[in-house]
């Protein structure tokens, strides 16, 4: 049983010595900010064509976070590759030979990657907020406005938790390709489709991305049974389930 701090240092070294870490996190930042700013600029120029009702419920902060829809895919890729690359390269055997206590190994890896994801998510959401507000011109809001700071942190936490959720899924599936093949279409297509099917709509409301969307909203959606706090709790439950599933697979399967 190697000391947990030694394992943490080792996992940090692993994270910072592969290129995929840099480019997935960089992509998450760039895509989120660029897309958020673009949507904000378009909203600004189209604002006058909105109906009175739409103008009243216009969410300036939420508009600047729109980029997160695409940026989260890069975060998912980050979470998947942190774990999946151990399996695809066979490095998992060296790793577990070095740290045979699998719980310590898993916790350290997830903790280090979560820290990195959180730092990048915070930088990303604040950057996209300010860039988006600048693009919104006269229709912008400020961090001091009601619920805006909470929504900004909500957006950062959502991005981070998507990465952590993906780590759990990748540990269960033990493959980058398989995890990406399931997670990407799931968050891009399936939740949208489910949400538009009447019967499945109630279920779809509790999927991670819907819960996450609630965390980012300044004005709660009236037809959703929970608010930002509820969304956070639902998201945490998904993440906990994925991590637990990953742990059970890691603990019980042969490496």
């Amino acid at each position: 049983m190697s000391a947990p701090t030694a394992t943490l240092r080792s996992e940090w070294a692993k994270l910072t010595t592969v290129r995929s870490t840099g480019w997935t996190l960089f992509a998450a930042f760039v895509v989120t900010v660029a897309f958020g700013t673009l949507v904000s600029a378009l909203s600004n120029s189209d604002y006058d064509s909105l109906s009175e009702q739409e103008k009243l419920s216009f969410d300036a902060a939420g508009t600047s976070f729109t980029g997160g829809l695409l940026g989260q895919l890069a975060m998912i890729a980050f979470g998947v590759m942190v774990i999946g690359s151990e399996y695809s390269t066979g490095a998992i055997r060296s790793s577990l030979a070095a740290v045979p206590r699998r719980g310590v190994f898993y916790l350290s890896k997830v903790a280090v990657a979560t820290g990195a994801a959180l730092a990048v998510s915070l930088a990303t959401t604040f950057a996209t907020f300010f860039a988006g507000q600048a693009a919104l011109g006269s229709h912008s809001t400020t961090l001091g406005a009601h619920n805006v700071l909470r929504a900004t942190f909500g957006a950062a936490l959502y991005m981070t938790l998507m990465a952590v959720f993906s780590m759990g899924v990748a540990t269960m599936l033990r493959s980058s390709m398989l995890s990406m093949g399931i997670l990407m279409p799931f968050f891009f297509l399936i939740t949208q489709i489910l949400a538009s099917v009447p019967g499945a709509k109630k279920v779809a409301e509790y999927l991670p991305d819907q819960a996450g969307a609630a965390m980012v909203r300044v004005v709660p959606k009236s037809d959703l049974p929970y608010g930002a706090g509820g969304g956070f709790v639902i998201m945490l439950a998904w993440v906990a389930a994925a991590l637990l599933g990953g742990y059970l697979v890691l603990r019980n399967r042969d490496a």
């Binding site: 190697s2 030694a6 394992t7 240092r9 080792s10 070294a13 692993k14 010595t17 592969v18 290129r19 995929s20 690359s85 151990e86 390269t89 066979g90 490095a91 055997r93 060296s94 790793s95 030979a97 070095a98 740290v99 045979p100």
Partner: peptide, 30 residues
Amino acid sequence: PLRRIGALLDAKAMHGGRSAYDNLRCLALS
């Protein structure tokens, strides 16, 4: 355990995208 028993299981049990030095450094740190 690496200080007690060292093993070569298969040549590909290393991360291909991390330099040889860094692969070993990660193991050493742990």
